[in-house]
Design a binder for these strands. Structure first.
Length: 333
DNA sequence: AATATAATCAACCGCCTCAGG
DNA sequence: GCCTGAGGCGGTTGATTATAT
């Protein structure tokens, strides 16, 4: 109420982040781990507010973030999850750990809204605001309680598998990639091995390198520091470090390597299948009854659950993915 | 080539939640 | 139980880039 916004302080810098600031932030997080954002500006000397630091990390510098075009699979997931959950972007992002909630939100607002509108042309009133508001207020409220449990369960299952995989196969995809100015301090808040820590933050280096690459195009006067950083980018964008966790759980990340995102998708599906079956009877079972699902939304919801839990049911996947928008959102709008 | 318009997306703002005192 | 403040979230803005005229 009376509390002034954290960014109102005099001398706080706003606007786009520079590569130098990114490097400072990543270096700090590499040493201390994400979290305790309040202390980041004072400890790093960054003239940014804590929120800005957190946002920059979660939306841009965090390892494992996939940028660029959304695949059809991702697109369909977002559409269906939005129909199911409403505009709860963080929740939706937890199903697409490579994407940030901000990215998904932007993609929804710029691409998918229009796409759906086109698809619905001739289908009566389809005001955007009505779409979103009625959706989120009516449905996500009802579904919220058990959905949170579902989300957490799936998330934990995915994380467990990814951790197991990364222990079996220490990532060496960025063998030489280290921030030039940072020490090899172990990440104090994670349980990763040193190798994992290296690759985890190497991905941040990649993010910065990419940023620097763009930056260099714009400004030919590069410092030697940034040039050096550029030289430490011996990998292509196809090889990614993929982390579990969403923007809201960056503190417990682990890494696996993967050359294709679909491999990850199938891994997670596999993981969800195995790890959630036992929990289905406990967590979901006990929380679901609280939710009185309208008849019309039962089918898409069940399909989604099956799809998430049961990778061995290709027909279900097909049903869900091929389900028309009208079917999936019937009764929701 | 110049200008106008549209699209994109990083970042900000304000509200909410929840843990700790 | 109340208060405070850090962290998180969703809505929105505005700068930049792409495309059309």
């Amino acid at each position: 109420m009376g509390r002034p916004p954290c960014c109102d302080k005099i001398g706080i810098k706003k606007g786009p982040w520079t590569p130098e600031e990114d490097i400072i932030l990543v270096s700090y997080i590499q040493e201390h781990g994400p979290g305790n954002w309040r202390s980041v500006p004072s400890n790093t000397g960054l003239m940014r507010c804590s929120k800005s630091c957190r946002l920059r990390w979660t939306n841009y510098l965090r390892p494992g973030i996939k940028r660029g075009n959304f695949t059809d699979h991702e697109e369909k997931m977002i559409i269906h999850l939005q129909a199911l959950l409403g505009n709860r972007w963080a929740a939706i992002a937890s199903y697409l750990p490579q994407r940030t909630d901000n990215d998904i939100k932007n993609y929804w607002n710029t691409h998918l809204k229009k796409k759906l509108k086109k698809m619905q042309i001739g289908g009566g009133s389809d005001d955007d605001n009505n779409d979103d508001k009625s959706n989120s207020s009516n449905n996500s409220q009802i579904k919220g309680q058990w959905e949170r449990r579902l989300q957490t369960d799936i998330h934990m299952a995915k994380q467990a598998l990814c951790e197991a995989l990364s222990l079996d196969k220490p990532t060496q995809i960025f063998p030489e990639t280290k921030l030039p100015s940072t020490s090899s301090h172990h990440h104090p808040t994670t349980t990763t091995t040193p190798n994992q820590t290296t690759s985890l933050y190497a991905s941040s280096t990649e993010n910065i390198a990419r940023l620097l690459e763009n930056w260099m195009k714009k400004s030919p006067n590069m410092t030697t520091t940034t040039t050096t950083t550029m030289e430490t980018k011996p990998f292509s964008n196809n090889n990614m470090v993929i982390t579990t966790g969403s923007s809201s759980s960056e503190g417990t990340q682990s890494t696996i390597t993967c050359t294709q995102e679909y491999a990850l998708d199938s891994l997670w599906s596999f993981n969800s299948e195995r790890s959630s079956q036992s929990e289905e009877n406990t967590n979901l079972g006990e929380s679901k009854p609280q939710y009185q699902e309208p008849q019309e939304t039962q089918v898409p919801l069940m399909l989604l659950e099956n799809w998430l839990f049961d990778d061995a049911a290709p027909q279900c996947n097909e049903d869900l993915m091929n389900m028309s928008l009208e079917e999936s959102t019937e009764g929701l709008f």
